[in-house]
Write a protein that binds this DNA or RNA. Structure first.
Lengths: 298, 298
DNA sequence: TTCACGCTTAAGAATATCTTATGTTAATGG
DNA sequence: CCATTAACATAAGATATTCTTAAGCGTGAA
């Protein structure tokens, strides 16, 4: 026999357990009207009243009680089934897929603190430029740099970023760079990412880009930053990756001008991964670290 | 814990039981693409593959098997719960709510045959002009005359109907009525229903209605028919109700002109009532009777 | 080597669901 | 008493999901 109005049954179940439409609505993060409508729909379909609506409280009719005992068994069973799949083969190893640049320039320097807080969890950092397929790869969570919304995974936004020009202090002195137009004579270093090239950056600032020399492209922002540190030229860097070098003096931020990136850093994983204890801990930790970073490098 | 993608779980369950998306789709009366998408959605959400897709057949993964055992328990329980509400307090009494006119002129004369076929079922005919509220009234099924689609009940269409003018043969002779314009001198009988008055009828035929005398209204089409039989005047009748009188000679259909009604007769009841044996039998019987009627009175 | 069959995918259409805003009712307190 | 409040109901329109359509893909059989 086909089952119809599944949601109706589920909403009924939650309402019956709470004996309140309001609380059910709250629990399910919908409005109370939604519950009311679903329950009414179910009652219509079954041709029977399930709740007795009295003043400011509801109670179950005979039919409602009968049905509730079954829905309880049913949905408990479903929950169990789903949560069984959540079992994690290795709860003490956290496998994180990260962009190589973010890994080496941001995450690695900070990971010590995570280990100090949670010594029982060993972290396996997997630098990877491609998108993670959680169905085939055994990854707990990944850090992406993108638009922040994807179809098949849940995401947690971490921070935005912005782009600016930076180089080694000595290089700046050598070439006596003071304003954007001074870039013309220099070797420009850039990432191969489409959103991180000089063309884009200059255009965002309203400058004509074609008058600038072609740049040297690296696959990976960390290489760009390292190139700049090695006085190769002027790098277009992400604040998140370059900040600490600017602070230490290994790099100088060349102009006031900077461009906010369209992309943000975020954590991404299938919904159920976020229920793993180790993943929860990692999320909390990295969010704190992000706040710290933003506070320290504004 | 909140359960998400309930439909996904259900579709998975059906697919897993049939071990075929196609059959599952068939069973659920949706396309196979819908199953594919729901299952994929569930797999994405859980972050695990549930089926192994091989050529022209699917099989369950370990996770799939695990989940399926739970969904089986769950959905069986739901089905039970729902079907328990379907219990009928008195399976041998069929309570039918019908329009008084249809009851007396169409249904009652035929009911003997139902009783002959199913002597164990006693029929309780409840003539009622108002809409039936199945939640408060203890009715198995009702016969309505309307548009054939309602929000809160399932309907089974029986037949359309059409309207024509009829009167007693002697009245026709007396007033020597031969064409529609001859109506002008006569007493017109009509139903109080908005769709069954002379105005509407004449307009449908493209005649000017205002030039005809005001009519005598009765609450209930049977009264209209009976008025005509009693030679009171000319009745606007529904074929379904007048046919047998026309056949027997108690009434004459006055002109060739007739107007198809916007409404149809249909059976209506909450979905679950249709699963009661007595209701099923009644549906079958009345559908046969309708066919018979249409065949005999064309 | 092509056909046929079952699953997948993408895009837009169809439908269901949700929110917003308002109404109803009955207990509560001034 | 009347105003207020809390919980549920309802209508209409916005939103989101779900479905269908139409194409594609891969494989085993003819």
């Amino acid at each position: 026999m086909k089952i119809r109005s599944l949601t109706g049954l589920y909403y009924f179940h939650i309402a019956a357990t709470h004996l309140s439409f309001k609380e059910a609505a709250n629990y399910l993060s919908v409005t109370q009207a939604a519950i009311s409508q679903q329950v009414r729909g179910l009652e219509d379909r079954l041709g029977t009243k399930l709740f007795i609506r009295s003043h400011r409280q509801i109670s179950l009719t005979r039919d409602g009680q009968l049905l509730h005992s079954h829905t309880t068994a049913a949905f408990t069973s479903l929950e169990e089934g789903v949560s069984q799949l959540k079992t994690d083969s290795d709860p003490y190893t956290l496998k994180v897929s990260v962009l190589p640049s973010f890994a080496s320039l941001w995450l690695v320097p900070r990971l010590g603190s995570f280990n100090k807080q949670h010594p029982e969890i060993s972290v396996l950092l997997l630098p990877d430029n491609t998108l993670t397929d959680f169905k085939t790869q055994d990854i707990d969570i990944c850090v992406r740099y993108g638009i922040g919304r994807y179809d098949d995974v849940q995401t947690v936004p971490l921070m935005g970023d912005y782009l600016y020009a930076a180089c080694h202090p000595s290089y700046q002195k050598e070439q006596s760079i003071e304003q954007v137009s001074d870039l013309k004579g220099c070797l420009l270093l850039e990432d191969a990412r489409p959103d991180m090239n000089w063309d884009y950056w200059l255009k965002q600032l309203g400058k004509e880009s074609t008058s600038y020399p072609s740049a040297l492209k690296y696959e990976g922002s960390n290489l760009v930053v390292e190139g700049a540190i090695a006085s190769q030229g002027i790098a277009l860097v992400r604040h998140s990756l370059a900040a600490k070098f600017v602070r230490s003096g290994a790099l100088v931020k060349l102009f006031e001008q900077q461009v906010a990136s369209d992309f943000i850093y975020c954590l991404a994983a299938p919904e159920r991964h976020f229920e793993r204890e180790k993943v929860k801990l990692f999320c909390e930790w990295i969010q704190k670290e992000v706040k710290q970073f933003q506070k320290n490098y504004t």
